[in-house]
Design a protein around this nucleic acid. Structure first.
Lengths: 237, 237
DNA sequence: CGAGCGATTGAAAAGACTCAACCACCGTGG
DNA sequence: CCACGGTGGTTGAGTCTTTTCAATCGCTCG
C-alpha cells in the first residue's frame, strides 16, 4: 500500500511554511525530523482508517486527501479535504480514542508520519504549538457546524453549488485554466461530500450545466459563471 | 435581560469539579475569581448571539443551555446542549472571530462570565489548561462530524430516536421518574435539533408513541422502551 | 472484442415539506 | 368567573424533493 519515500527534511520543506508546523521551534523541528517517516500513497489508498488506533499524526507533503466517515449502511460521508501542509489524525490522538474518521489519497501523495511521542513532546515543549492546535480544531469545528446547518436546511442544489465553490477555494484551479477545478472527484465522491445519492448528484450537475453555470469533461469541472454559482448556492448577496 | 447574581467563588464551586476548570492552578483560579461576573438568565433569554464579538467565555453554574446556529432562512439549528460545568464561547475567542453560534437558556440559568484577558492569561500560565481546551474542542468536533453523517444519511425517525437518547445522556432523567427526560424542549426546538420541520417532528413523535417506545405529557418525554428506541435509532447491535 | 466500472437516464415510490386548518391550553382582562 | 385571544401543538392534504431500482451508455483495459 505505502512505499517509503526519499528522506525529507522539515527544515528544507517549503510546505512547512504554510502549515501548522510553521512556528515550531528548532528543537521540536529537530525532534520531528529525526523520528518521522515519509511515505508515498497511491491514489485511492487509505492513509488511516476509522476505528483503528492512532499511533501518530500525518503531515501531507504533497497531494490531496479526503477525510471521511463511514455511515451505518456503509456509505461514506466526506467531512474534510486536506492538501499539502495540512496535518491529519491529531484529533484522535489528543482524545486518545480510535480514529473517528478515515483518510484516503485523492491522488498520489507523499505523507510524513510523526509518532505520537514526538507529537506530545512538541505539544509540551513548544510555546506556540498548543495554540496552533487549538486554532486548527477551532476552524474545523466551525466548518463542521456550518455543514450541519447546510445539511439540515439547504437543498441539494445549494449544497452542491457551495461544495464546488469550496473545492475551488481549497484546491484552486488548473494552471492555464482558471475556471477548471484542480481536484478530480468521482461522482460518488462528490455525492458523498454533498450528502446525497449519486443519481441525484448527477442530475443536479446536469441542471447546473444546463444553466451554463458549470461545464464538465469527465471528472474535470469548469466554473463558467462564478456569480451565478454563488447565487445558486444562496450565498451572501 | 440578565440580572447580576450573588457572588460565586470558584474555589467553593462544586460545579467546577466536573468542569473544564477542574485542574486549573490556584493562581489562575484566583485570577478568574477576581475578574469574573455572574449573571442570571431567565428561560429563553440569549446569553450570546451569533455575529457579535466575543468578550470572554461563559461558564454555566446552573441550568441548561442550547447552542444553535441560524440558517439563511432564519431557521435555527441546535448544534449542542450544555449544562452546569460546561464552558461556552471559547471557540470564537481563540479564533478571534465573531461568535459563529448563539446560546440561550433552556431554563433559568446562572452563568459566570470570564473576560477574554483572563482566559488568555490562564491559557498561557496554566500548565494543563491548553490541553483541556484541545480536548474540549476535539470532543465537540467529533460529535459534530457524527451529526454530519447522521443528517446526510439517516431518516428523521432514526435521528429523532438518537436525539432522545442523547438528551437522556446529557441531561439525565427526572428524580423519581427515571424514564422522564430531565429537559423540556418545545416541538420547535426538538425539530431544530433533529433537523426537520416541526410538523414532521410531531408526526414522528406520534409514531414512536404509537409503538410504545415513548410517552409524552406536554413537554415531558418518557422513554418507555430503551432497547426499542436504540433499535429505532439503528444504533449498535 | 468483451467484461466491467463509472456515469447517466427513466420511472416509480418514499420521505419530508408546506400550507392550512383545527385543537388545547393558558393567562388576561372584562 | 368566564369569554377572549394568543401561543404552541396536532392533523390533513397536496406537493415537491430526493431516493431507489432498473436499465442503458460509454469508456477503458485486458
Amino acid at each position: 500500500m505505502t512505499e517509503s519515500s526519499e528522506r525529507l527534511y522539515c527544515n528544507a520543506c517549503e510546505m512547512r511554511l504554510n502549515s501548522a508546523l510553521k512556528d515550531v521551534d528548532t528543537a521540536s523541528l529537530e525532534a520531528i525530523d529525526t523520528t518521522k517517516a515519509c511515505n508515498a500513497f497511491k491514489k485511492g489508498h487509505v492513509i488511516f482508517e476509522e476505528g483503528s488506533a492512532p499511533k501518530g499524526i500525518f503531515c501531507i507533503h504533497d497531494g490531496k486527501v479526503k477525510v471521511y466517515k463511514t455511515g451505518d449502511e456503509g456509505r461514506d460521508q466526506i467531512v474534510r479535504f486536506a492538501k499539502a501542509g495540512d496535518i491529519l489524525g491529531y484529533r484522535s490522538l489528543v482524545s486518545g480514542e480510535p480514529y473517528s474518521v478515515s483518510a484516503a489519497a485523492l491522488e498520489d501523495c507523499v505523507v510524513c508520519f510523526i509518532p505520537q511521542a514526538t507529537f506530545f513532546e512538541v505539544l509540551k515543549s513548544d510555546e506556540h504549538f498548543p495554540m496552533t492546535v487549538i486554532r486548527l480544531l477551532s476552524g474545523e469545528l466551525q466548518r463542521a457546524q456550518k455543514q450541519i446547518v447546510n445539511l439540515a436546511q439547504k437543498p441539494v442544489r445549494e449544497r452542491l453549488a457551495e461544495t464546488l465553490l469550496i473545492l475551488r477555494e481549497v484546491y484552486g484551479t488548473d494552471d492555464g485554466d482558471s475556471a477548471a477545478l484542480a481536484v478530480k472527484l468521482s461522482r460518488d465522491e462528490l455525492a458523498s461530500v454533498v450528502g446525497t445519492a449519486t443519481e441525484t448528484l448527477v442530475r443536479t450537475i446536469a441542471d447546473l450545466k444546463r444553466e451554463n453555470l458549470i461545464a464538465t469533461d469527465k471528472k474535470k469541472i469548469r466554473i463558467l459563471d462564478l456569480e451565478g454559482l454563488i447565487h445558486a448556492g444562496n450565498l451572501q448577496d
